[in-house]
Design a protein around this nucleic acid. Sequence first.
RNA 1: GCGGAAGUGGUGAAAUGGCAAACACACUAGCCUUAGGAGCUAGCGCCCACAAGGCUUGCGGGUUCAAGUCCCGCCUUCCGCACCA
Length: 856
Amino acid sequence: MAEEKELRYEPAPIEEKWQQRWAADPKLYAADEAACDEPAAKPKYYVLEMLPYPSGQLHMGHVRNYSIGDALARHMWMRGYNVLHPMGWDAFGLPAENAALKNNTPPRQWTLANIAAMKRQMMRLGLGYDWATEVTTCLPEYYRWNQWFFLRMYEKGLVYRKKSKVNWCPECATVLANEQVVNGCCWRHEDTVVEQRALEQWFLRTTAYAQELLDGLDKLEGWPEKVRTMQRNWIGRSEGTEVDFIFERSAKEIREQKDGVTTLEGDRERVRIRVFTTRVDTIFGATSVQLAPEHPLVKALADTDSGLRMQVDQLMEEQKRARETGDVAAIEKHGVPTGHFAINPYNGERVPVWVANYVLMDYGTGAIMSVPGHDERDFEFAKKYAIPVRRVIAPADSSAEESPLPFTSEDGVLINSGEFSGLSCTEAQKRLQEVAERGAFGNATVTYRLKDWGVSRQRYWGTPIPMIHCERDGLVAVPDDQLPVMLPEQIEITQQGGSPLARVPEFVNVRCPRCGGPALRETDTMDTFVDSSWYFYRYTDAKNAAAPFDSAQARYWFPIDQYIGGVEHAILHLIYSRFWTKVMRDLGLIANDEPARRLFTQGMVIKDGAKMSKSRGNVVSPDDMVARYGADATRMYALFAAPPDRDLDWQEDGVAGVSRFLGRVYRLVARHAPAARASRGETAQKPEGLSLKLERKLHQTVAKITLDFEGRWHFNTCVAAIMELVNEMQAADAELASGAVAAPILHELLRTLVLLLAPFAPYLAAELWEMLGEEGAVLRAPWPASDPELAKEDELEVPVQINGKLVAVVRVAADADGRQIELAARSDEKVVARVAGKNVAKVIVVPGKLVNLVVK
RNA sequence: GCGGAAGUGGUGAAAUGGCAAACACACUAGCCUUAGGAGCUAGCGCCCACAAGGCUUGCGGGUUCAAGUCCCGCCUUCCGCACCA
């Protein structure tokens, strides 16, 4: 039959046709500028997917991420919202420099070519982005605002410089990112051990917002609990006490020996060792003080004690090696006695001062009091070195008197603690803090694990830090009117040491903006997380040449209504962006406290039970899928195969199945479109019979999908629901062909089916929309409403159980009351047979659900 | 070690405490012919030759008229954090 051939579904020509039409209509996915003035009539909706790194190839994780976001955006367009749905490129970063080394292609050229390739892939997938707002972070139009923000933070005291450790590969003679350190060695030179070098680095004072970042999490109800917990742990607030132990030697003595200036705190007569503890209630059990190997006092002592020096170097070496292999908790505790003593300010007890490899300089004060009786780690250490273990807390329930040490619970009572004996742990903590404050040897304090953000990178392909080093004036900020500090384009990337920028004299040698004398430009560039910390604000006003964005635009669009991306960004990107938002708010640029109201983290795409990776050889290319099955089938499969928050197992047979389904939809609509078209304008009569049956299914499907878009997001079951609807319509195909359903109803059935399909399979929906003779974009057609009257069944099947076991199913009217349902159940012959001769003790009737007879 | 998530057919999965396995994939049988990566029909958790019937949501308890779902204890897998004082 000739017409059969015409009905064959071939995605390629359809998708090509619509891709061209959409490309010719740049306003299609643009936000409605006029809507800003009438927020009540047309509310805004900002849906955002995390921007990709332009590697040159989309992977399936991207396809999944963008299919979710695009379905949501399309749905919201159809719901009549003013939608902002942008896309951009996280375009700075190391791979561009590596590619430059490998292929001798300049990073900019390599990056822009990758962007072009990926943009093509996105367009081929039919993703509805407003390309007029595209943001590319490696272009000066964007990164100049990174510099501008850096200067604003510098003015507010949120930027500072300090010496800090970096990973250094002696072979590459350059700095490595943490991810480039593999088992303590360089990723490119697997036999070369990475060193820790101390360099002057730039820092952003994220800790200034630690408390607000923590408190804000409670209000982020639209964020996954998992992400909020991860951030809480990362910020790591802990309340405790700082206490000064008095070192037995004076600063003067140490200074004399050292023949120089010490950096010790409290440069008075006595040297104080400040320790941080969360368990000041155990302080009468402190039997030693432990210092981190990098502690300034250790340095001072080691300067005059070469034996100590050697041993401390050894400890640092151990810490370093452990940090490199990532197995910090597993290293054996190891320490060195300094031979000196310190005095516990509460009881005057003289305890030895040690240096230990398990004490960290960058947490708390870099010194601890060691209480082996009530701390696991101190206990392990004390056992090894025969340091006394003393019990100072008795368990609250006295029967457990013999509880073994270390006893770490706070549910206890102080003993052997002088005047504080008898107090509970919590009471004692309060009292001891008061005493310390009165005696000026300590105070209650809060410590965070969160550290300031080191943003310096000794790299080429990043935002130049806008600072100048002048011999006369010291550090001088680049004035705003000299921004952007341009990244030089003609540059040779080599494997030589240090930042490539340092070898470009035209870049480095400048005049001091203050005194006009010769000066050197900073050659560090910024961490790429800076770029992604505020890019979503730029989308609201991407072309602005006078400011990062217009505040009114940002106020209109923010916060982001729905942010979608992978969990792997749960901490770094999402903390940095929250930090940046708070800084921008304090600069008066925006009104929101948080960047995104709701966050969704989608699951990974896996294949054969493992994450897709080149080394496993289980990578599926999106291009391949699109070429074989079309963009619609590829995207729809990504939504159908699993709920969006779970991992998705990629099975090509499944994509083929979705493609076959789309073919059935295509043929179904194509077969009946002529009849349906003919009815346009006619009003439908009240449906009955087959018409009612199909209408009912249709309205149930609309209700289900609408509800899911409102929050549950089980798009896999949405697709399944559409399949059920199509199956039911197809089963009635012959009757439809013979006119059993009136044309206006047939028209509504097909038209609504296409609307339901539009968020998931936009190409096919557009094609069928046109086939049905509809005008304009499906995207602008209103989302269908479900009529509850039509969706309602008039008869229900009610299962009947006896003692919880299914025995029969009876049909009753949908509005039957409990009595009627029970009657129907009890007159069923199977039920009668089972109940005969027994006593019905209880009858549970849940109208519309089931009947359960409790029989004895 | 701490924190979190998940364990359901051959596979991906579904199920406001109320008929477990919807919807697909794979498979089996049949039909069709333009022999296609096509279409259509039927079957498809396990046991029992069929039927009748029985069993079944990682394991063990509990709550309930009723548990995949709630509670307690275990096991396994995955993810995050990990000497944070």
